[in-house]
């Protein structure tokens, strides 16, 4: 046992020593980037946590108030509604976008000419900014001007579905692209083997394509979940959180508390909650995908 370990060590040593001389820069090279990111993202995060224990209107100095903001957070019915809404919106957007993007992506992975042309057109919505797309649908859903001559955004379900649809319209092109890339990496030989075994198109899709795309599905899901928070613009422009507070998702609620009513302490409590939720979620997802392991996806192939 000991002998083999020793052997393995000596065998590894020479390349390591060579590589030490070149291409292994000092860790200090990472410092400027780390400091920059820390200053503009990590420090503000810590500050948000601090401010959540104070009351501050943005003018004087923040005054410590203990747990008041957090107590308010737990008691606030708008907060409970908003949290539920954010979760439902994220899940609904995920389902809508994943189903369509996966099917379109696998379809677009084929190399036929018509598929190439359609894929190029499908991508166009993604070229517009969220702001531009939100304004576009704000106009198109206008009850006096728009395509649907009804007050879509005035009803609770209408406003919610509009946000899910507009988000999908914008981001499905991007996720289609990810799935297209994933589908093209599936070794052709798997399909050839399946065809020889007599598996039909749908059997091949469920037995080869879907399992082979599992990493792509995780990547796309992570991006969708984290990205669903950027629906802020869509909500601000399309519905302003309305009707009433029916589409006021967490980031919008925070924006209102901070920059409409100038209750920065309470806004910071909502923000801290958002950070905790998002970071927790991301750690879970990273664990599940194993992206942190320093390995190339091509290793072992």
């Amino acid at each position: 046992m000991t002998v083999t370990v020793e052997k393995a060590r000596t065998a590894e040593k020479p390349p390591t020593r060579h590589a030490n001389r070149a291409g292994r820069p000092h860790a200090a090279w990472a410092l400027p980037g780390v400091l920059f990111f820390t200053f503009f993202a990590v420090v503000p995060m810590a500050l948000a946590l601090y401010l959540s224990f104070t009351t501050w209107d943005g003018l004087g100095d923040p005054r410590p108030v203990g747990l008041d903001n957090w107590k308010k957070l737990l008691d606030d019915p708008r907060m409970t509604q908003s949290l539920g809404l954010t979760v439902v919106l994220t899940v609904a957007s995920w389902a809508f976008q994943t189903v369509i993007a996966l099917l379109l992506g696998v379809w677009a992975a084929g190399r036929q000419r018509n598929r190439a042309i359609l894929s190029a057109i499908f991508f166009v919505p993604f070229l517009l900014s969220s702001t531009a797309i939100s304004i576009l649908f704000y106009a198109l859903l206008d009850p006096n001007f728009g395509i649907i001559q009804r007050d879509t955004l005035g009803s609770q379900s209408g406003a919610f579905l509009a946000i899910v649809f507009v988000g999908g319209w914008q981001f499905i092109p991007f996720h289609t692209l990810i799935y297209q890339g994933g589908a093209r990496q599936i070794p052709e030989v798997l399909y050839q083997a399946a065809a020889i075994d007599g598996a039909g198109r749908y059997r091949q899709f469920f037995s080869i394509t879907l399992p082979q795309l599992r990493h792509t599905i995780t990547t796309s899901t992570v991006l969708m979940v984290v990205g669903s928070l950027t629906y802020f613009e869509t909500v601000l422009i399309l519905t302003k959180g309305g009707p009433g507070t029916d589409t006021a998702i967490l980031p919008y609620l925070m924006y209102e508390a901070g920059f409409k009513t100038y209750d920065f302490g309470y806004a910071s409590a909502i923000a801290s909650f958002l950070v905790l939720a998002a970071t927790g979620l991301s750690i879970v997802l990273v664990r599940l995908t194993g992206f942190g392991a320093m390995r190339s996806t091509r290793e072992g192939m």
Partner: peptide, 17 residues
């Protein structure tokens, strides 16, 4: 730091920023 940083939503830090 950057792996976890992916999840920091910009919305969450606008007040302190």
């Amino acid at each position: 730091l950057f792996l976890v940083g992916v999840a920091i939503p910009a919305q969450a830090v606008v007040v302190p920023l």
